[in-house]
């Protein structure tokens, strides 16, 4: 089985799973309708653009889930820090634009890194480039964990 076939089947299976969750009925007729409509969707997607790594990212390692757990911890930490800033009697910010070098090989890896930066409050990706990201941070303390995050994203980026 080629990688393209695997991607097509994975896309169809994901769409059918989505149908099952939304419908909640398991009669044969409705299941058949689900299969037909997900097949139709796959056909339309294949006509629009090739089903490649960007459309169905099968290349990512399963440790993405572990990374999400770690990211959840980071999000909680920076939420507390931002909440403390908002609730302070006098708001004192030291905003800055910082350059964050990226070490990911693929576009998908860079997207995950940029999205993770935006997901943690206190840092927002403003502009993306080939070798670095421009990040707006509320204070110095928010940017200290970014090199560590970069390393972790590179580790989950597959092949």
């Amino acid at each position: 089985m080629t990688a393209g076939t695997a991607r097509t089947i994975a896309l169809g299976a994901a769409l059918f799973g989505f149908w099952l969750v939304l419908s909640g009925h398991f009669t044969p007729f409705l299941l058949l309708m689900g299969v037909v409509s997900s097949a139709l969707c796959v056909w339309i997607v294949a006509r629009m653009e090739p089903i490649d790594e960007t459309a169905v990212p099968l290349g990512l390692r399963p440790s993405l889930l572990l990374y999400w757990l770690w990211l959840g911890g980071e999000i909680v930490k920076s939420n507390i820090a931002v909440a403390r800033m908002i609730l302070a009697r006098r708001i004192s910010l030291l905003p800055r634009f910082i350059l964050v070098p990226t070490s990911q090989q693929s576009d998908m890896g860079r997207v995950i890194f940029a999205n993770s930066i935006t997901l943690t409050p206190g840092t927002v990706t403003v502009e993306t480039g080939g070798k670095a990201l421009l990040v707006h941070a509320l204070a110095e303390s928010f940017s200290t964990s970014l090199p560590d995050m970069d390393r972790r994203v590179t580790a989950i980026e597959g092949r």
Binding site: N79, V82, A83, I86, P95, L119, P121, G122, T123, V124
Partner: peptide, 20 residues
């Protein structure tokens, strides 16, 4: 924070709290 923070760039971070 959306109301209190001084400018657009700092308000983005408050919106990030709501979203996450």
């Amino acid at each position: 924070g959306m109301v209190r923070l001084p400018d657009f760039w700092s308000r983005i971070h408050a919106a990030g709290m709501i979203d996450t």
